[in-house]
Computed example of a mutant assay.
Amino acid sequence: MGFQVVVDADKCIGDEECVEVCPVDVYEMQDGKAVPVNEEECLGCESCVEVCEQDAITVTEV
């Protein structure tokens, strides 16, 4: 069991909130956008979803 993490690049404003709040460093900034580079580490806590005011992040159990 794991989680699929998707960032809608059109909605992401690059405020780095998800990068800061993620306890397992799923995200890194690339070209001013958050990118889930360590998706396999995702705990499914959805802290990133909660802090993203643009609703750019979805976390789905797979």
Rank of each mutant, 00 (worst) to 15 (best):
D15V: 06
E40R: 06
T58S: 11
V19W: 14
P36F: 00
E16G: 00
E40W: 10
Q54V: 06
G2I: 11
V51E: 04
V5I: 14
P36A: 04
K11F: 01
S47N: 13
G44C: 01
P36I: 10
Q30M: 12
V59G: 09
N38K: 13
D55C: 00
N38H: 15
V24C: 13
M29K: 14
C22D: 14
N38D: 13
E40N: 10
G32P: 07
T58P: 01
D10E: 15
C52L: 12
C45T: 09
D15M: 00
F3T: 07
G32H: 01
A34H: 03
Y27M: 12
C22M: 13
C12S: 09
K33W: 05
C12L: 04
E40V: 06
G2M: 00
G2Q: 03
K33C: 02
T60N: 06
G32S: 08
Q54A: 11
E39S: 13
V35N: 00
K11W: 00
V62C: 02
E53P: 04
G44D: 00
D8M: 00
E39Q: 14
K11T: 07
K33S: 04
A9S: 11
V26N: 09
S47F: 14
P23I: 14
V49P: 06
G44H: 05
P36D: 05
D10N: 12
G2Y: 02
M1G: 04
T58F: 00
A9F: 09
V51L: 10
Q4R: 14
P36W: 07
M1P: 09
V19H: 13
V51P: 03
V35E: 05
E16N: 13
Q30G: 10
V51M: 08
I57Y: 07
C18M: 11
E20M: 14
P36K: 12
C12G: 05
C18V: 11
I13Q: 02
M1F: 07
C12Q: 00
V5C: 04
M1W: 02
E20N: 15
D15G: 11
V5S: 02
E39P: 09
V7S: 07
E46T: 12
E50D: 15
I57C: 01
V6F: 05
E50C: 10
V21S: 12
Y27G: 07
V59H: 09
E17D: 15
E28M: 14
D55Y: 05
V6I: 15
A56L: 01
D25G: 13
T60R: 03
T60C: 04
V49F: 01
G2V: 01
D25A: 15
P23V: 14
E41T: 08
A34S: 15
E53W: 07
